[in-house]
Design a protein around this nucleic acid. Structure first.
Lengths: 204, 204
DNA sequence: CGCCGATTCGGACTATAGTCCGCTTATGAC
DNA sequence: GTCATAAGCGGACTATAGTCCGAATCGGCG
Protein backbone atom coordinates (compact mmCIF):
# COMPACT_ATOMS: atom_id res chain seq x y z
CA UNK A 1 0.00 0.00 0.00
CA UNK A 2 1.50 3.38 -1.00
CA UNK A 3 1.96 5.64 1.96
CA UNK A 4 0.06 8.45 0.36
CA UNK A 5 -3.10 6.31 0.32
CA UNK A 6 -3.15 5.84 4.07
CA UNK A 7 -5.79 8.04 5.68
CA UNK A 8 -4.22 10.53 7.99
CA UNK A 9 -5.98 9.33 11.11
CA UNK A 10 -4.42 5.91 10.71
CA UNK A 11 -0.96 7.41 10.87
CA UNK A 12 -1.50 8.82 14.33
CA UNK A 13 0.23 6.18 16.40
CA UNK A 14 -2.19 4.83 18.98
CA UNK A 15 -1.13 5.41 22.59
CA UNK A 16 0.98 2.36 23.46
CA UNK A 17 0.59 3.05 27.15
CA UNK A 18 -2.07 1.58 29.41
CA UNK A 19 -4.81 4.02 30.24
CA UNK A 20 -4.70 5.31 33.81
CA UNK A 21 -8.00 3.72 34.84
CA UNK A 22 -6.91 0.43 33.34
CA UNK A 23 -3.67 0.53 35.31
CA UNK A 24 -5.55 1.28 38.50
CA UNK A 25 -7.92 -1.61 37.96
CA UNK A 26 -5.08 -3.94 37.06
CA UNK A 27 -3.32 -3.16 40.30
CA UNK A 28 -6.55 -3.44 42.29
CA UNK A 29 -7.27 -6.87 40.83
CA UNK A 30 -3.79 -8.19 41.52
CA UNK A 31 -3.83 -6.92 45.06
CA UNK A 32 -7.31 -8.29 45.78
CA UNK A 33 -6.50 -11.66 44.23
CA UNK A 34 -3.27 -11.93 46.15
CA UNK A 35 -5.03 -11.18 49.42
CA UNK A 36 -8.00 -13.47 48.82
CA UNK A 37 -5.81 -16.36 47.67
CA UNK A 38 -3.60 -16.03 50.73
CA UNK A 39 -6.60 -15.82 53.01
CA UNK A 40 -8.91 -18.54 51.69
CA UNK A 41 -6.75 -20.68 49.43
CA UNK A 42 -6.52 -20.50 45.68
CA UNK A 43 -9.07 -23.25 45.14
CA UNK A 44 -11.96 -21.73 46.98
CA UNK A 45 -11.85 -18.22 45.61
CA UNK A 46 -14.04 -17.59 42.59
CA UNK A 47 -13.42 -15.07 39.90
CA UNK A 48 -16.62 -13.32 40.97
CA UNK A 49 -15.17 -12.83 44.41
CA UNK A 50 -11.95 -11.44 43.01
CA UNK A 51 -13.85 -9.02 40.82
CA UNK A 52 -16.07 -7.90 43.68
CA UNK A 53 -13.16 -7.46 46.08
CA UNK A 54 -11.26 -5.46 43.49
CA UNK A 55 -14.31 -3.32 42.82
CA UNK A 56 -14.39 -4.10 39.10
CA UNK A 57 -16.78 -6.00 36.85
CA UNK A 58 -16.25 -9.53 35.66
CA UNK A 59 -15.78 -8.37 32.13
CA UNK A 60 -12.84 -6.23 33.14
CA UNK A 61 -11.24 -9.09 35.02
CA UNK A 62 -11.48 -11.52 32.13
CA UNK A 63 -10.57 -9.09 29.38
CA UNK A 64 -7.47 -8.20 31.31
CA UNK A 65 -6.26 -11.66 32.31
CA UNK A 66 -7.99 -13.98 29.86
CA UNK A 67 -8.88 -16.67 32.35
CA UNK A 68 -8.07 -17.93 35.81
CA UNK A 69 -4.77 -19.34 34.63
CA UNK A 70 -3.83 -15.94 33.23
CA UNK A 71 -4.50 -14.33 36.58
CA UNK A 72 -2.22 -16.90 38.17
CA UNK A 73 0.51 -16.22 35.65
CA UNK A 74 0.25 -12.49 36.31
CA UNK A 75 0.59 -13.05 40.05
CA UNK A 76 3.64 -15.25 39.53
CA UNK A 77 5.17 -12.93 37.00
CA UNK A 78 7.74 -11.21 39.19
CA UNK A 79 9.03 -14.38 40.81
CA UNK A 80 9.11 -16.23 37.52
CA UNK A 81 11.00 -13.49 35.73
CA UNK A 82 13.58 -13.46 38.50
CA UNK A 83 14.23 -17.16 37.99
CA UNK A 84 14.40 -16.80 34.23
CA UNK A 85 16.79 -13.91 34.63
CA UNK A 86 19.04 -15.85 36.95
CA UNK A 87 19.15 -18.62 34.37
CA UNK A 88 19.93 -16.35 31.46
CA UNK A 89 22.30 -13.90 33.07
CA UNK A 90 22.99 -14.94 36.65
CA UNK A 91 26.08 -16.51 38.18
CA UNK A 92 26.97 -20.18 37.73
CA UNK A 93 25.89 -22.84 38.23
CA UNK A 94 22.27 -21.71 37.64
CA UNK A 95 23.24 -19.06 35.10
CA UNK A 96 26.01 -19.14 32.52
CA UNK A 97 28.40 -17.31 34.86
CA UNK A 98 31.61 -15.62 33.78
CA UNK A 99 33.09 -16.70 30.49
CA UNK A 100 36.20 -18.07 32.18
CA UNK A 101 34.36 -20.11 34.78
CA UNK A 102 31.30 -21.74 33.26
CA UNK A 103 29.67 -24.66 35.02
CA UNK A 104 29.21 -28.01 33.32
CA UNK A 105 25.86 -28.88 31.77
CA UNK A 106 25.21 -31.38 34.52
CA UNK A 107 25.80 -28.87 37.25
CA UNK A 108 23.60 -26.30 35.56
CA UNK A 109 20.84 -28.85 35.13
CA UNK A 110 20.98 -29.82 38.80
CA UNK A 111 20.94 -26.16 39.77
CA UNK A 112 17.89 -25.60 37.57
CA UNK A 113 16.00 -28.51 39.12
CA UNK A 114 16.78 -27.26 42.61
CA UNK A 115 15.89 -23.65 41.85
CA UNK A 116 12.71 -24.62 40.02
CA UNK A 117 11.57 -26.81 42.89
CA UNK A 118 12.25 -23.95 45.31
CA UNK A 119 10.02 -21.74 43.19
CA UNK A 120 7.37 -24.42 42.69
CA UNK A 121 7.07 -25.48 46.30
CA UNK A 122 6.83 -21.89 47.40
CA UNK A 123 3.87 -21.20 45.10
CA UNK A 124 2.48 -24.66 44.49
CA UNK A 125 -1.21 -23.79 44.48
CA UNK A 126 -0.78 -20.81 42.23
CA UNK A 127 1.38 -22.64 39.71
CA UNK A 128 -1.05 -25.53 39.78
CA UNK A 129 -3.90 -23.16 39.05
CA UNK A 130 -2.05 -21.63 36.13
CA UNK A 131 -1.17 -25.06 34.74
CA UNK A 132 -4.44 -26.90 35.13
CA UNK A 133 -7.02 -24.37 33.92
CA UNK A 134 -8.10 -25.62 30.52
CA UNK A 135 -6.81 -28.31 28.18
CA UNK A 136 -3.06 -28.39 27.90
CA UNK A 137 -2.62 -24.88 29.24
CA UNK A 138 0.60 -25.97 30.93
CA UNK A 139 2.26 -26.66 27.62
CA UNK A 140 1.06 -23.50 25.94
CA UNK A 141 2.14 -20.83 28.40
CA UNK A 142 5.35 -19.05 27.60
CA UNK A 143 7.09 -20.11 30.75
CA UNK A 144 6.89 -23.80 29.87
CA UNK A 145 8.49 -23.11 26.54
CA UNK A 146 11.27 -21.27 28.33
CA UNK A 147 12.00 -24.08 30.78
CA UNK A 148 11.84 -26.59 27.97
CA UNK A 149 14.25 -24.76 25.75
CA UNK A 150 16.68 -24.30 28.61
CA UNK A 151 16.63 -27.95 29.66
CA UNK A 152 16.80 -29.21 26.08
CA UNK A 153 19.84 -27.04 25.46
CA UNK A 154 21.63 -28.35 28.52
CA UNK A 155 20.77 -31.94 27.61
CA UNK A 156 21.91 -31.37 24.05
CA UNK A 157 25.35 -30.03 24.92
CA UNK A 158 25.90 -32.86 27.38
CA UNK A 159 25.66 -35.23 24.47
CA UNK A 160 24.37 -38.22 26.41
CA UNK A 161 20.72 -37.68 25.50
CA UNK A 162 19.55 -39.21 22.25
CA UNK A 163 16.57 -36.86 22.03
CA UNK A 164 17.05 -33.73 24.12
CA UNK A 165 13.67 -32.33 23.11
CA UNK A 166 11.84 -35.33 24.41
CA UNK A 167 13.97 -35.81 27.48
CA UNK A 168 13.45 -32.18 28.45
CA UNK A 169 9.70 -32.77 28.37
CA UNK A 170 10.21 -35.89 30.47
CA UNK A 171 12.18 -34.06 33.12
CA UNK A 172 9.65 -31.23 33.20
CA UNK A 173 6.83 -33.76 33.56
CA UNK A 174 8.25 -34.66 36.95
CA UNK A 175 8.25 -30.98 37.87
CA UNK A 176 4.60 -30.41 36.91
CA UNK A 177 2.62 -28.79 39.71
CA UNK A 178 -0.09 -31.43 39.51
CA UNK A 179 2.49 -34.21 39.74
CA UNK A 180 4.40 -32.72 42.64
CA UNK A 181 1.21 -31.88 44.49
CA UNK A 182 0.04 -35.48 44.18
CA UNK A 183 3.37 -36.94 45.30
CA UNK A 184 3.97 -34.54 48.16
CA UNK A 185 1.78 -36.27 50.78
CA UNK A 186 2.99 -39.68 49.67
CA UNK A 187 6.74 -39.17 49.35
CA UNK A 188 7.49 -35.86 51.02
CA UNK A 189 9.59 -33.01 49.73
CA UNK A 190 12.98 -34.60 50.15
CA UNK A 191 12.31 -37.73 48.13
CA UNK A 192 10.77 -35.64 45.38
CA UNK A 193 13.82 -33.38 45.25
CA UNK A 194 16.24 -36.29 45.34
CA UNK A 195 14.27 -38.19 42.71
CA UNK A 196 14.16 -35.26 40.33
CA UNK A 197 17.89 -34.66 40.74
CA UNK A 198 18.65 -38.33 40.08
CA UNK A 199 16.48 -38.24 36.98
CA UNK A 200 18.30 -35.14 35.75
CA UNK A 201 21.62 -36.86 36.33
CA UNK A 202 20.54 -39.95 34.43
CA UNK A 203 19.23 -37.98 31.49
CA UNK A 204 22.06 -35.48 31.17
CA UNK B 1 -22.33 -55.57 68.76
CA UNK B 2 -24.07 -58.80 69.93
CA UNK B 3 -26.03 -60.40 67.16
CA UNK B 4 -29.16 -60.59 69.25
CA UNK B 5 -29.30 -56.82 69.47
CA UNK B 6 -29.56 -56.32 65.74
CA UNK B 7 -33.12 -55.46 64.72
CA UNK B 8 -34.59 -58.15 62.55
CA UNK B 9 -35.12 -55.93 59.54
CA UNK B 10 -31.41 -55.19 59.39
CA UNK B 11 -30.64 -58.88 59.07
CA UNK B 12 -32.57 -59.30 55.87
CA UNK B 13 -29.72 -59.04 53.42
CA UNK B 14 -30.51 -56.25 50.97
CA UNK B 15 -30.67 -57.37 47.36
CA UNK B 16 -27.06 -57.22 46.22
CA UNK B 17 -28.15 -57.22 42.60
CA UNK B 18 -28.76 -54.14 40.52
CA UNK B 19 -32.41 -53.43 39.99
CA UNK B 20 -33.63 -54.18 36.48
CA UNK B 21 -34.41 -50.55 35.61
CA UNK B 22 -31.04 -49.45 36.94
CA UNK B 23 -29.27 -52.01 34.77
CA UNK B 24 -31.23 -50.89 31.73
CA UNK B 25 -30.36 -47.26 32.35
CA UNK B 26 -26.72 -48.09 32.95
CA UNK B 27 -26.48 -49.84 29.61
CA UNK B 28 -28.37 -47.05 27.87
CA UNK B 29 -26.02 -44.42 29.26
CA UNK B 30 -22.88 -46.31 28.28
CA UNK B 31 -24.17 -46.93 24.80
CA UNK B 32 -25.29 -43.33 24.30
CA UNK B 33 -22.03 -41.94 25.67
CA UNK B 34 -19.97 -44.23 23.50
CA UNK B 35 -21.89 -43.19 20.40
CA UNK B 36 -21.88 -39.46 21.13
CA UNK B 37 -18.19 -39.42 22.02
CA UNK B 38 -17.29 -41.25 18.82
CA UNK B 39 -19.47 -38.95 16.77
CA UNK B 40 -18.68 -35.51 18.17
CA UNK B 41 -15.50 -35.96 20.19
CA UNK B 42 -15.22 -36.36 23.91
CA UNK B 43 -14.61 -32.68 24.54
CA UNK B 44 -17.72 -31.30 22.96
CA UNK B 45 -20.30 -33.63 24.46
CA UNK B 46 -21.91 -32.40 27.65
CA UNK B 47 -23.31 -34.57 30.39
CA UNK B 48 -26.73 -33.08 29.62
CA UNK B 49 -26.47 -34.39 26.10
CA UNK B 50 -25.46 -37.83 27.29
CA UNK B 51 -28.38 -37.92 29.71
CA UNK B 52 -30.82 -36.78 27.07
CA UNK B 53 -29.56 -39.23 24.46
CA UNK B 54 -29.77 -42.07 26.95
CA UNK B 55 -33.27 -41.04 27.95
CA UNK B 56 -32.44 -40.61 31.63
CA UNK B 57 -32.26 -37.64 33.97
CA UNK B 58 -29.07 -35.92 35.00
CA UNK B 59 -29.44 -37.16 38.53
CA UNK B 60 -29.38 -40.74 37.36
CA UNK B 61 -26.28 -40.16 35.28
CA UNK B 62 -24.31 -38.58 38.10
CA UNK B 63 -25.48 -40.92 40.85
CA UNK B 64 -24.40 -43.83 38.73
CA UNK B 65 -21.01 -42.60 37.53
CA UNK B 66 -20.07 -39.90 40.01
CA UNK B 67 -18.67 -37.42 37.52
CA UNK B 68 -17.45 -37.14 33.95
CA UNK B 69 -14.22 -38.92 34.83
CA UNK B 70 -16.21 -41.80 36.28
CA UNK B 71 -18.12 -42.15 33.04
CA UNK B 72 -14.83 -42.28 31.19
CA UNK B 73 -13.49 -44.94 33.51
CA UNK B 74 -16.62 -47.03 33.00
CA UNK B 75 -16.24 -46.80 29.24
CA UNK B 76 -12.60 -47.84 29.42
CA UNK B 77 -13.27 -50.58 31.92
CA UNK B 78 -13.17 -53.56 29.57
CA UNK B 79 -10.04 -52.53 27.73
CA UNK B 80 -8.26 -51.58 30.93
CA UNK B 81 -9.09 -54.84 32.65
CA UNK B 82 -7.72 -56.75 29.68
CA UNK B 83 -4.39 -54.97 30.00
CA UNK B 84 -4.26 -55.49 33.74
CA UNK B 85 -5.06 -59.14 33.26
CA UNK B 86 -2.34 -59.60 30.69
CA UNK B 87 0.11 -58.05 33.13
CA UNK B 88 -0.94 -60.20 36.08
CA UNK B 89 -1.52 -63.52 34.35
CA UNK B 90 -0.55 -63.27 30.69
CA UNK B 91 2.47 -64.62 28.84
CA UNK B 92 5.90 -63.06 29.06
CA UNK B 93 7.26 -60.51 28.57
CA UNK B 94 4.20 -58.43 29.49
CA UNK B 95 2.94 -60.94 32.04
CA UNK B 96 4.94 -63.15 34.38
CA UNK B 97 4.80 -66.07 31.94
CA UNK B 98 5.59 -69.68 32.79
CA UNK B 99 7.64 -70.29 35.89
CA UNK B 100 10.49 -71.77 33.87
CA UNK B 101 10.66 -68.94 31.35
CA UNK B 102 10.20 -65.62 33.08
CA UNK B 103 11.31 -62.44 31.37
CA UNK B 104 13.78 -60.06 32.97
CA UNK B 105 12.50 -56.98 34.75
CA UNK B 106 13.83 -54.78 31.98
CA UNK B 107 12.01 -56.72 29.29
CA UNK B 108 8.79 -56.67 31.28
CA UNK B 109 9.08 -52.93 31.82
CA UNK B 110 9.63 -52.31 28.12
CA UNK B 111 6.67 -54.53 27.31
CA UNK B 112 4.52 -52.59 29.76
CA UNK B 113 5.48 -49.23 28.28
CA UNK B 114 4.69 -50.47 24.79
CA UNK B 115 1.39 -52.06 25.76
CA UNK B 116 0.33 -49.08 27.81
CA UNK B 117 1.08 -46.68 24.96
CA UNK B 118 -0.93 -48.91 22.61
CA UNK B 119 -3.85 -48.64 24.99
CA UNK B 120 -3.37 -44.92 25.62
CA UNK B 121 -3.01 -43.86 22.01
CA UNK B 122 -6.06 -45.88 21.08
CA UNK B 123 -8.24 -44.10 23.63
CA UNK B 124 -6.35 -40.88 24.22
CA UNK B 125 -9.30 -38.54 24.56
CA UNK B 126 -11.19 -40.82 26.88
CA UNK B 127 -8.22 -41.45 29.16
CA UNK B 128 -7.49 -37.76 29.16
CA UNK B 129 -11.03 -37.04 30.21
CA UNK B 130 -10.85 -39.56 33.04
CA UNK B 131 -7.51 -38.17 34.21
CA UNK B 132 -8.13 -34.45 34.02
CA UNK B 133 -11.59 -34.06 35.55
CA UNK B 134 -11.03 -32.56 38.98
CA UNK B 135 -7.94 -32.01 41.08
CA UNK B 136 -5.53 -34.90 41.04
CA UNK B 137 -8.11 -37.37 39.82
CA UNK B 138 -5.39 -39.14 37.81
CA UNK B 139 -3.55 -40.13 40.96
CA UNK B 140 -6.60 -41.23 42.84
CA UNK B 141 -8.23 -43.63 40.40
CA UNK B 142 -7.55 -47.29 41.02
CA UNK B 143 -5.91 -47.87 37.69
CA UNK B 144 -3.10 -45.43 38.44
CA UNK B 145 -2.36 -47.27 41.65
CA UNK B 146 -2.21 -50.50 39.71
CA UNK B 147 0.24 -49.22 37.09
CA UNK B 148 2.33 -47.63 39.79
CA UNK B 149 2.58 -50.75 41.89
CA UNK B 150 3.51 -52.82 38.86
CA UNK B 151 6.21 -50.45 37.66
CA UNK B 152 7.61 -49.93 41.16
CA UNK B 153 7.86 -53.71 41.62
CA UNK B 154 9.74 -54.14 38.37
CA UNK B 155 12.09 -51.27 39.19
CA UNK B 156 12.63 -52.66 42.67
CA UNK B 157 13.67 -56.13 41.57
CA UNK B 158 16.00 -54.71 38.96
CA UNK B 159 17.97 -53.15 41.77
CA UNK B 160 19.31 -50.17 39.85
CA UNK B 161 16.69 -47.72 41.08
CA UNK B 162 17.43 -45.98 44.35
CA UNK B 163 13.78 -45.13 44.92
CA UNK B 164 11.45 -47.38 42.92
CA UNK B 165 8.35 -45.66 44.26
CA UNK B 166 9.45 -42.30 43.01
CA UNK B 167 10.89 -43.54 39.75
CA UNK B 168 7.66 -45.37 38.98
CA UNK B 169 5.79 -42.08 39.34
CA UNK B 170 8.36 -40.45 37.08
CA UNK B 171 7.93 -43.02 34.34
CA UNK B 172 4.17 -42.82 34.59
CA UNK B 173 4.34 -39.02 34.38
CA UNK B 174 5.64 -39.42 30.85
CA UNK B 175 2.70 -41.70 30.08
CA UNK B 176 0.07 -39.25 31.36
CA UNK B 177 -2.65 -38.60 28.81
CA UNK B 178 -2.25 -34.84 29.12
CA UNK B 179 1.48 -35.11 28.57
CA UNK B 180 1.26 -37.44 25.59
CA UNK B 181 -1.52 -35.38 24.03
CA UNK B 182 0.59 -32.23 24.29
CA UNK B 183 3.70 -33.87 22.85
CA UNK B 184 1.96 -35.71 20.04
CA UNK B 185 1.73 -32.81 17.56
CA UNK B 186 5.24 -31.69 18.42
CA UNK B 187 7.18 -34.94 18.45
CA UNK B 188 4.93 -37.53 16.86
CA UNK B 189 4.11 -41.00 18.08
CA UNK B 190 7.43 -42.62 17.32
CA UNK B 191 9.63 -40.22 19.25
CA UNK B 192 7.26 -40.44 22.20
CA UNK B 193 7.41 -44.24 22.17
CA UNK B 194 11.18 -44.29 21.76
CA UNK B 195 11.66 -41.70 24.45
CA UNK B 196 9.49 -43.53 26.96
CA UNK B 197 11.32 -46.79 26.26
CA UNK B 198 14.70 -45.11 26.71
CA UNK B 199 13.54 -43.60 29.97
CA UNK B 200 12.36 -47.01 31.18
CA UNK B 201 15.72 -48.50 30.24
CA UNK B 202 17.62 -45.77 32.10
CA UNK B 203 15.51 -46.13 35.22
CA UNK B 204 15.35 -49.92 35.36
C1' DC C 1 -53.16 -59.65 43.60
C1' DG C 2 -52.01 -55.80 46.36
C1' DC C 3 -49.12 -53.81 49.83
C1' DC C 4 -44.84 -51.58 51.49
C1' DG C 5 -40.29 -50.17 52.05
C1' DA C 6 -36.11 -49.55 49.78
C1' DT C 7 -34.19 -48.06 45.61
C1' DT C 8 -33.97 -45.35 41.80
C1' DC C 9 -35.51 -41.60 38.94
C1' DG C 10 -35.34 -36.99 36.97
C1' DG C 11 -35.60 -32.30 36.52
C1' DA C 12 -35.23 -28.01 39.01
C1' DC C 13 -31.53 -25.74 41.35
C1' DT C 14 -26.78 -23.97 42.49
C1' DA C 15 -22.15 -22.54 41.56
C1' DT C 16 -18.75 -21.03 38.55
C1' DA C 17 -16.05 -20.01 34.28
C1' DG C 18 -16.23 -17.39 30.58
C1' DT C 19 -18.74 -14.19 26.71
C1' DC C 20 -21.04 -10.12 24.86
C1' DC C 21 -22.29 -5.58 23.93
C1' DG C 22 -24.24 -1.04 24.94
C1' DC C 23 -22.52 2.60 27.97
C1' DT C 24 -18.88 5.41 30.08
C1' DT C 25 -14.64 7.77 30.30
C1' DA C 26 -9.85 8.89 29.47
C1' DT C 27 -6.95 11.16 26.37
C1' DG C 28 -5.01 13.65 22.63
C1' DA C 29 -6.06 17.37 19.09
C1' DC C 30 -7.41 21.87 18.25
C1' DG D 1 -12.28 24.23 27.35
C1' DT D 2 -14.52 21.34 24.00
C1' DC D 3 -14.78 17.56 20.98
C1' DA D 4 -14.16 13.03 18.73
C1' DT D 5 -12.63 8.68 19.16
C1' DA D 6 -10.93 4.67 20.84
C1' DA D 7 -10.18 2.17 24.92
C1' DG D 8 -12.08 0.43 28.74
C1' DC D 9 -15.96 -0.89 31.74
C1' DG D 10 -19.33 -3.93 33.94
C1' DG D 11 -23.19 -6.58 34.64
C1' DA D 12 -26.54 -9.43 32.36
C1' DC D 13 -26.20 -13.69 29.84
C1' DT D 14 -24.77 -18.49 28.49
C1' DA D 15 -22.93 -23.02 29.15
C1' DT D 16 -21.82 -26.73 31.94
C1' DA D 17 -20.61 -29.67 36.04
C1' DG D 18 -22.52 -31.29 39.82
C1' DT D 19 -26.35 -31.45 43.94
C1' DC D 20 -30.84 -32.35 46.00
C1' DC D 21 -35.12 -34.17 47.18
C1' DG D 22 -40.00 -35.23 46.30
C1' DA D 23 -42.11 -38.54 43.08
C1' DA D 24 -42.28 -42.81 40.79
C1' DT D 25 -41.00 -47.51 40.49
C1' DC D 26 -39.41 -52.07 41.53
C1' DG D 27 -39.76 -56.43 43.55
C1' DG D 28 -40.28 -59.41 47.56
C1' DC D 29 -43.93 -61.02 50.69
C1' DG D 30 -48.29 -62.22 52.53
Amino acid sequence: MPEGAVPLELLRTPPPVERADAARNRAAVLEAASRLFAEHGVESVSMDQVAAAAGVGKGTLFRRFGDKAGLGVALLDTRERALQDAILRGPAPLGPGEAHATATGGARLAAFVTAYLDYLLEHLDLVRMSETAGRGSRYRIGAYRFWHRHVALLLGTGGRSEDPEHDAHALLAVLAAEHVAALLPELGEERIRAGALRLAARLG
